[in-house]
Every structure is written in C-alpha cells, then in structure tokens.
Amino acid sequence: MIALTMYVHATYMRSYRYVPPLLLLIIIMVWIYSLVPNPVMGSYAFTSALLFAVSAWLAFGFIDTEHETQLTLTALHAGSLSRLTAAKLLYAWVFTAPLVILLVLYPALLHKFDRTPSVYELAAALAGHLSLSLLGIACGVFFTARFIPRLTTSAPGLLAIVALALAGGGIHRMLPESVAFLAWLLPPVHVIMNALDAYPRTSGLSIWAACGFGIIYGVAALTIFVLLLRHKGLTAA
C-alpha cells in the first residue's frame, strides 16, 4: 500500500491539477486576513467552508489523472480497482492535511484574530476543517469523468452541489415541514460551519458531534463511490 500511495502521489504531482485550487485557497486566505482583527471561530467557520469547496475541486481533478490504459495496468498491479481507488481517496484526504494546518495556524500565529484562540478552539478548528475536507472529497469524486464524461455537465453539477451544501441551513428552513428532512441528504457542511461559528455561545460538544456526523457522512459517501466504481469496472465512462 505504501508503494501504491507513492505512485499515486507521483502521478498527481506530475499532473499539476492541484495548482489552481491551491493558489485560489492561498489568495483568499491572505485576502480575508489582510484586515485585522477577525473573530476566531467565525473566521474558522468561513475557512472550513472554503476548504470544503477547494477539496471538492481537488478531488474532481484527482481521480482521473491516469489514462484509461494506464489505469488498467495500475489496477492490475494494485490487485483490484477498489484497492487502487481506496489508496487514491486516502491520499486525497492526506493531501489536504497541510492545508488544514495552514488555515488553522496561519491566523493564530500571525495574530490575525481579535484575541488568542484557546487550545480547545484550535483543536475544534482542526476537526472542523478535516471533516469538511473529507466532505469536499466525497462530493468531488462523484463528478469525475468515469461517471460524468462531459465537462460541460460535470463542472456545473459539482458547483451546484457545493452551493447547495453551503446553503443547506437556508434550504432546510425554506422547505415545507413535510419534506424538510430532504435537506439532511445534503452534505452537512452548514451543520459544521454553524457549530464552529456558534462557539462559545453553545456547548463545545456540538462541534464534535457535528464533525463526527460529517466524517460519518463522508466515509459513507466514499464507500458508495468505491462500490459503484467497482461495479462499473475498468470500462470507460
């Protein structure tokens, strides 16, 4: 698995598909912290949502970095397409870890907040960013070329699901009570954002519950993705 992960890393680095989303994230981060001071948890709620969108973009261009023929050979060497896909998904989440650390520590160490965040707040921010990066990956992979071959369809579709996830709270309030439960089918991005933004006005346990829900949702979605991809096999989209 280590050798497989290193191969995935080398393939992705050569693709340079990560450059635009990373540049966008850094530019927005520097821009929002160019004015000080900023609220601690409100800022972390915003940057976690930003990471969700960037992670979805990264995943969108990550799964399809290999040519169809090369993918077949790699899957044979890996033992199965499912094993290769699992390695890719794990690597994608690990790839976002430095971004999580950057978004959490950059404003804290450079004194961009109106006060010094506590250790508990830093830990909660790390958990929130990690869970939202996982949710972003879980959204982005379903719009890859193996499922939706036309970019003119997949790109707007991904943008739509990202927008709907970010607006999930408002959608839940707008829907009639009889169908309001449908809003819970969306990735729980707004749940994590609201939990971060509301601290310390609400119990800190709400943050961990929200992050746990996000991770469970993300793992379940990625499991469905692997199963669907295994059912589809190595045939072209």
Rank of each mutant, 00 (worst) to 15 (best):
A123L: 15
L23Y: 08
H111N: 15
E66R: 08
G61V: 03
R14K: 03
T96Q: 01
M193T: 02
T5V: 09
A183I: 01
M1E: 11
R150M: 10
L175T: 01
A87V: 07
W31I: 09
L58F: 09
A236I: 06
L25C: 06
I148E: 04
T11C: 06
P149V: 00
R83Q: 09
K88D: 06
T96C: 07
W31Y: 14
L25Q: 14
L35R: 14
L23A: 14
W208T: 06
R230G: 14
A183P: 00
G204N: 07
R83D: 02
A160K: 00
E121M: 09
V226N: 06
F52G: 01
L71W: 07
G169H: 07
A209W: 15
V19L: 10
R173P: 00
L158V: 04
P107L: 11
M174G: 00
M6I: 14
A138M: 11
D197H: 11
Y16W: 05
D64K: 00
S43E: 10
T96K: 01
T116P: 05
L103F: 13
M174E: 01
P98H: 06
A92T: 06
L4R: 04
F213A: 15
T85R: 08
L205C: 07
P188F: 02
F46A: 11
R115P: 12
L228Y: 13
A236K: 03
T153W: 05
Y7K: 13
T153G: 00
P149R: 07
A221H: 11
A221D: 08
S206K: 15
L23H: 08
